[in-house]
Design a protein around this nucleic acid. Structure first.
Length: 419
DNA sequence: TCTGGGGTCCTAGGACCC
DNA sequence: TCTGGGGTCCTAGGACCC
C-alpha cells in the first residue's frame, strides 16, 4: 500500500505554525513580487478569493475582511518541508519527496496488529506535534489511488484509507474526472464530452480507446485506478534535465544595466543549482521580455541559445556567456519586465570533454567554485559574488509582507518571553 | 500602479540515412 | 502503365504536475 501525505494550505500553515494569532483568521500568501495569491487559508477560500488571483484585484476584499497577507518566504517553507520529510522517514524507509508539501511512502507490513488507520493517525499526530502542520493522508493500492484517497481525506478528518474493493469503488464513483491525478483540464473537457464524468466512468473504458485518445500516459492512469501499480516510487530524486531561473522585475525598466544585473544574477543561480546536483550544462538560453499586461507599451520578446564551448557549471563561464547572449538580443527603447536564464543538456560533472580551440582550466574553476559555495553556505547567500550582479534594487523582488526566517537564521529566530 | 516560477513526458512530422 | 521499405534523430507543440 502507498500513502500520500500532504500539508493543507502549506505556505499558510507554515506561517501559522509560528504565530498563534493567525489561527481562525483569514490568511493568504502571495507569489514572487507579491503578484498572485498562491496559498489560502480556509477562511480566504470562503471569501471567494481564487488561486492565482492577482493581488491588486482583491485588495478591497482583503482590507474589508482583515485578511492577513504574506509574501512568499521560501526559506521558511523549504526548511519546514525538509523537517516534514525527515519525520516521514521515521515511519517508512521508502519515501518519495514529490513536492514541497507532498510525499508518497510505501507502507511496509504493519506490526503488532496495527491497522492502516492507526498508522496514518500516528503520522498525522506526530507531524502536528513536531511542526504544528495539519496534513491529509490518503492510503491506497497505487499512487494514483492514494491521491484519490488524499482528496477524500479533506472531507473526513484528514485521513482516508482505501483498503477494500468496496471502498475503492465508492471512492471512484464520487471522484470527478478532473480530480484524478494525471488528468488535467484538456482531457477533462474531452472526457466530459464523452460522458465520462467520474473516475469510475473512466475505468469502464477499454484500454485500446484510452491508448488511442490519451497516449500511454492515460493508459497508466487507467491501470493505476484499477489497482495495478504502474508508477513507481522514486526514492532517489532524479537529477534535473534542465534548470531555469527566471523572474519578473519589481518595476519594469529600459536600462541595460538593470537587465544585465538581473541576467548575471539568474545565471549565477543556475550555476549554483547545477553544482548542487553535480551537473554541467551544454547549452544556455537567455530570454527577456516586456510586460504583456501593459497594453500601451510596445512589446518585445526575444531569446538566444548559445552552446557553451566546454560544458560547465562555473559561475564565471555561465555568467559570461549569458551576458554575451543578452547583448545579442537586447534592444534599446523597450520597458523590460522579465528575464531568465535556462541551462539544458545537462551532463554529469565528471564527463567533461575538452575543446581544443578553447582555453579553459576546468580544475581551476571547479576548485574556485567549491570554495565559493563553501563560503556562501557558511556566511549566507551572496557573501561573495560577482560585481556585475550589482546592488541595484530596481529589478529585485518586491516582498512587502515577508515574515521572519524563523528556522534558518539566528537573527530571526522566534523569541519567547516569560511574563 | 499592480498579473509567479518552476518542472516532466509523449507524439507527430520532417529531415535525413541506407 | 509502372515509382520500396526500412530505419534514426530532432523539434515543436501539447499534455500534465506542483
Amino acid at each position: 500500500m502507498y500513502a500520500l501525505i500532504d500539508a493543507n494550505n502549506f505556505y499558510v500553515s507554515c506561517e501559522r505554525a509560528f504565530n498563534r494569532k493567525l489561527s481562525n483568521v483569514p490568511v493568504l500568501v502571495l507569489s514572487n513580487n507579491d503578484g498572485c495569491v498562491i496559498s489560502r487559508s480556509q477562511e480566504v477560500k470562503n471569501l471567494g478569493i481564487k488561486m492565482g488571483e492577482p493581488f491588486f484585484k482583491i485588495q478591497s476584499i482583503v482590507e474589508k475582511n482583515n485578511v492577513v497577507v504574506f509574501s512568499s518566504n521560501y526559506e521558511l517553507y523549504g526548511d519546514m518541508s525538509h523537517r516534514l520529510h525527515q519525520i516521514l522517514r521515521e515511519f517508512s524507509p521508502e519515501v518519495e519527496i514529490y513536492s514541497i508539501d507532498e510525499a508518497f511512502i510505501r507502507i511496509l507490513p504493519l506490526q503488532n496488529g496495527m491497522n492502516y488507520l492507526q498508522y496514518a493517525k500516528n503520522i498525522k499526530n506526530t507531524i502536528s506535534q513536531y511542526l504544528s502542520l495539519p496534513v491529509g493522508i490518503g492510503v491506497g493500492r497505487t499512487k494514483t489511488l492514494s491521491k484519490i484517497a488524499n482528496h477524500l481525506a479533506k472531507k473526513s478528518e484528514g485521513i482516508c484509507i482505501l483498503d477494500s474493493e468496496e471502498k475503492e469503488n465508492t471512492a471512484l464513483k464520487s471522484t470527478p474526472i478532473e480530480e484524478v491525478w494525471g488528468i488535467g483540464r484538456q482531457y477533462s473537457k474531452f472526457l466530459r464530452k464523452k460522458i465520462i464524468n467520474t473516475a469510475w466512468d473512466f475505468i469502464q473504458m477499454p484500454e485500446s480507446w484510452i491508448l488511442k485518445n490519451m497516449t500511454k500516459v492515460g493508459l497508466k492512469t487507467l491501470q493505476e485506478l484499477k489497482g495495478f501499480p504502474r508508477i513507481d516510487l522514486e526514492e532517489v530524486r532524479p537529477k534535473k534535465q534542465g534548470i531555469a531561473t527566471t523572474r519578473s522585475f519589481s518595476q519594469k525598466t529600459d536600462d541595460f544595466a538593470n537587465v544585465q544585473e538581473a541576467i548575471a544574477t539568474h545565471a549565477s543561480r543556475c550555476s549554483e543549482k547545477l553544482r548542487r546536483q553535480n551537473s554541467i550544462a551544454t547549452y544556455l538560453t537567455v530570454f527577456i521580455h516586456t510586460d504583456p499586461f501593459a497594453e500601451h507599451d510596445s512589446q518585445y520578446y526575444n531569446s538566444k541559445t548559445l552552446a557553451l564551448p566546454i560544458p560547465t557549471n562555473s559561475q564565471l563561464e555561465i555568467v559570461k556567456f549569458a551576458l554575451k547572449a543578452l547583448n545579442l538580443i537586447f534592444e534599446k527603447g523597450f520597458y523590460y519586465k522579465k528575464a531568465g536564464v535556462i541551462v539544458t543538456e545537462l551532463m554529469d560533472e565528471n564527463s567533461v570533454q575538452g575543446n581544443l580551440f578553447y582555453e579553459f582550466d576546468t580544475t581551476k574553476h571547479s576548485n574556485l567554485m567549491g570554495k565559493l559555495d563553501e563560503i556562501n553556505k557558511k556566511y549566507g547567500k551572496d557573501t561573495v559574488k560577482l560585481a556585475i550582479m550589482g546592488q541595484n534594487k530596481k529589478w529585485q523582488l518586491k516582498r512587502e509582507y515577508l515574515s521572519p526566517r524563523y528556522t534558518t537564521n539566528w537573527d530571526e529566530i522566534i523569541e519567547v518571553k516569560a511574563e
